[in-house]
């Protein structure tokens, strides 16, 4: 029974038991498990390394053939034509355009929803609405894209013809669809961060005779600002990286314009269309996919790092 050497203990005092404080076995199993778990965790680092390596090598090949200045600042994007041109600005602006229109739709709606949920909604209403928003956040983007293509685009074409120049493709309509996709992100994270503002702050403001609206907009909102900014940046990063909606709704013409009615190609849409075709490794077209992917990766990485820092800030302040 006894690995502790303390059998005599129950028989009363006075008998000195033989005691070993050393481990009865080296517990190799414990160490092996810890090692195995560490390997699981390290896999994430391997993934990142693999992403960086797989983007970097073809990108370097690409930059050996196309000067970096021509790539980053060129205004004509026609990598599969002859003569080819590799100015990334049109598809970069395409990405920014759809993302901006998306943010324009989602930011006011998302923030207002968050203020309502956090400051106005009764616990019962909140308990119903918040899970609904979270479940709706799981709608696949291909479904939202089809909704944009089949329903939104014809509808908007009728009501606001200037929004859809080349039916059914339009940067503005793609933006609205992206907006629908990111509203739950903004609402959910902003709500969390406003609710983590200590209630003492609210009570103090009420004690000074302020109205509910002022407490919400002048006290809670500023106090939760880092979490709110984080939600916006994360949503922006999702909008920039979104592929299916823009593939379906924004079209495939690399136009250097912010006109919401124009059809645009985004960086993700370029990767999506080009990489599905039959292209062989080593060609410049193949390398172009990776160069655009590297640019996209850098943009979203910067946005994500910023958002992570902001989230940490609000967690530190109030938790």
């Amino acid at each position: 029974m006894d690995s502790t050497g303390l059998t005599g203990d129950l028989e009363g005092a006075g008998r000195k038991p033989a005691i070993s404080l050393e481990a009865p076995s080296p517990r190799y199993g414990e160490k092996a498990i810890k090692g195995l778990l560490a390997v699981c965790a390290l896999l994430s680092v391997v993934t990142t390394t693999a992403i960086v390596v797989s983007l970097l090598i073809p990108t370097l090949d690409f930059l050996a053939r196309v000067p970096i200045g021509d790539f980053l600042f060129g205004t004509s994007w026609a990598p599969t034509f002859t003569p080819a041109s590799f100015g990334v600005l049109p598809i970069l602006v395409g990405t920014l355009s759809t993302s901006l229109w998306g943010m324009l739709v989602a930011v006011p709606i998302g923030l207002a929803s968050a203020i309502f949920l956090s400051e106005y909604a009764s616990p019962r209403v909140r308990k119903v609405i918040k899970p609904i928003l979270e479940v709706l956040a799981g709608i696949p983007t291909v479904a939202i894209g089809i909704f944009g293509l089949v329903f939104l685009s014809p509808l908007i074409e009728k009501v606001l013809p200037f929004m859809v120049n080349v039916p059914p493709f339009s940067a503005g309509v793609a933006g609205i669809a992206i907006g629908l996709m990111i509203v739950p992100i903004i609402a959910s994270i902003s709500d969390d961060s406003m609710r983590s503002v200590p209630s003492g702050l609210r009570e103090a403001a009420y004690g000074l005779g302020s109205t509910k609206m002022k407490v919400a907009t002048r006290v809670v909102f500023p106090a939760a600002i880092s979490g709110i900014i984080a939600s916006l940046v994360l949503a922006g990063s999702r909008a920039v990286g979104e592929t299916m909606i823009v593939l379906l709704v924004a079209g495939a013409s690399p136009n250097l314009t912010f006109d919401p009615g124009s059809s645009v190609q985004t960086m993700t849409a370029f990767i999506g269309t080009t990489a599905t075709g039959d292209i062989s490794t080593g060609t410049i077209t193949y390398d172009t996919i990776f160069a655009v992917g590297a640019l996209l990766f850098v943009i979203t990485l910067v946005l994500n790092m910023f958002a992570i820092r902001m989230v940490r800030k609000y967690r530190e302040v109030y938790e």
Binding site: S237, I289, L296, T300
Partner: peptide, 29 residues
Amino acid sequence: RLIELNVQNLAGVPSIIYGILGLAFIVRG
């Protein structure tokens, strides 16, 4: 801390980038 930050970042990498990773590392490479 690096692993932790790395996981948080990976959660925000656009899905199409994973497609590129799959193409270059798993399908080929």
